[in-house]
Structures are given as C-alpha cells and as structure tokens.
C-alpha cells in the first residue's frame, strides 16, 4: 500500500451529484427533454447501487458458500434473460434460453472456479469478496459476446439462406456450408473483448484497476490483477461464444444436412 484509503461520507457523494443536478436544470431550461431521463437514470443508479452494497455487505459478513453460490446463480439467471432479450430472432422454445444461457454460465463458472482455486487463491477459494465481483465482470463480458454472436448467426443465416443451401445442394456438409457464416458470428461475438484488450491502458484505465489504485494499491500490482482479470474475461467470453455459436449452428441444421430456419422464431414486429 502506498497510501491510505480515504473513506467517503454520504455528504461527499451528494455533493458530487451537484454537477448532474446543474445539467438537469440546464436541460429543463433549454427544453432538451433530457432532464427527466437524467434524473430517473441517476435515481435508479443510486437505489440499485445502495441495495447491491447492502446485499454484498450481508453476503460478505455471512461468508456462506451456499449463499455465495445462490447469488452467483441469480446473476446467471439475470444474464440469461438478458441474452434472450437481446436476440432479434431467437431459437424457438426452451432453446432460446438454454443455449445462450447454458454456454455463458458454463464458460463463466469454469473460468471463475479455475481462476479462484488455482490463481488468486483466497482462503477459502469461494470467498465472496473475490468471487462475486469477479464473476460479475466475467459474466457481463460473456453475456455481451454470446448475445452478439447468436444474433449475428441467426441474422446472417437468414440473409444468406440461398447461398448456404446452394452449397448443400452441391454436396457440402452442413458444417462446410455454414462455415463463412459461423466465422462471422464468432468474430462478431469476440470483437468487443478483442477491442477492449487492444484499447485498455491507452484509451482508458479499466475500472477495477482505477479502483485499486484509488484505494492505495501500487499501480504495478493493480496492473497484474487487471491483466489476470482480462485474461479470465477473454477466456470465458471466447469459450462461451464458441459453445453458443456452434450449438446454435447444430440446432439450425440437422443430421440430413438441411438448414432448419424453421427452428427460429419469426421476427418480432
């Protein structure tokens, strides 16, 4: 530690919100119509963060493996719903939830367990103070990747239907015929994390690293943590995107090497 951690009072936080209030006032005065949105978004943020702060404090104090696992499961549930909601044309039935959610949950859980048990090694390994924030970061990034990958896959297959079927008709297998589409979906799912890795430290300092530096951790230590986290995030995202996209390709074709777009729901009006 190179410096003391400076605790904030609620009064400090309230003063920081003054800038936002000035902005909202300007918006009302100039009739930009943003004042209401700004205020509501800020109020939501305050309530959500206060609640999560209380919840995390309780979970950390109780230090129960079951409670930690339960919070993790709830996070998976919210993330799965989000993947489902972000698809324009999703798979019919339970597949619409299960494939994206399952791929994301499997990849994120595998990576967090390996990361905690073998690399970060808190005692016990599931210590919620480490497990939950890291799981949130990993899951959030995997969520973005998986939903982008699945969305690109279904939209591109729909658009390129004739080209895919032309290849099937000339004797290509389903995997050969959808290879360019699969590649595009995988690339689109992994692009955000690739961009994040390339830009990090140059364009912006990552939030976790900034937080550690502000709380007094040596920048070189904070960098090591950040690198480890980025590798875990990238690994989980890549694995989740791969599983989800290949699973969806399998579901959108069949053993007789047909394209099965009938297994997608119609576009929402």
């Amino acid at each position: 530690m190179s410096g003391a951690y400076l605790a904030l009072s609620y009064w400090d936080v309230a003063l920081a919100a003054l800038f936002l209030l000035v902005n909202a006032g300007l918006s009302f005065w100039l009739q930009l119509g943003l004042g209401r949105q700004l205020t509501v978004a800020a109020a939501r943020m305050v309530v959500q963060l206060l609640l999560i702060g209380l919840l995390l404090k309780t979970v950390f104090d109780l230090a129960s493996p079951w409670l930690t696992a339960g919070v993790g499961l709830a996070m998976i549930g919210f993330a799965t719903r989000e993947v489902w909601a972000r698809q324009e044309r999703r798979l019919k039935g339970a597949w619409g939830f299960a494939l994206g959610g399952g791929a994301m949950a499997f990849a994120a859980t595998l990576v967090i367990v390996v990361g905690l048990a073998t690399l970060i090694q808190p005692d016990p390994w599931w210590t919620p103070r480490f497990a939950l924030p890291l799981f949130g970061m990993i899951l959030g990034n995997a969520l973005t990747g998986v939903s982008l990958g699945l969305d690109t896959l279904s939209a591109t297959l729909d658009r390129e239907r004739r080209a895919v079927e032309a290849q099937l008709l000339l004797g290509a297998t389903r995997w050969q015929a959808v290879r360019p589409v699969t590649r595009r979906a995988l690339r689109s799912g992994m692009m955000p994390i690739i961009n994040a890795m390339a830009a990090t430290g140059v364009v912006s300092l990552p939030g976790m690293m900034t937080g550690q530096i502000v709380s007094g951790v040596e920048p070189t230590e904070a960098v090591k943590y950040q690198l480890l986290i980025m590798f875990l995030i990238a690994g989980a995202t890549a694995l989740g995107v791969l599983l989800a996209v290949l699973g969806a390709v399998r579901r959108l074709t069949d053993r007789r090497h047909r394209l099965r777009l009938d297994r997608l729901r119609a576009t929402q009006p």
Partner: peptide, 11 residues
C-alpha cells in the same frame, strides 16, 4: 440427384 432452384445462391 441435383436440384437447381429457381433462384440460385452464390457464396
């Protein structure tokens, strides 16, 4: 058994 659709596909 080659099927030639009315509208061809190109990839």
């Amino acid at each position: 058994v080659a099927y030639l659709p009315a509208e061809s596909g190109w990839w």
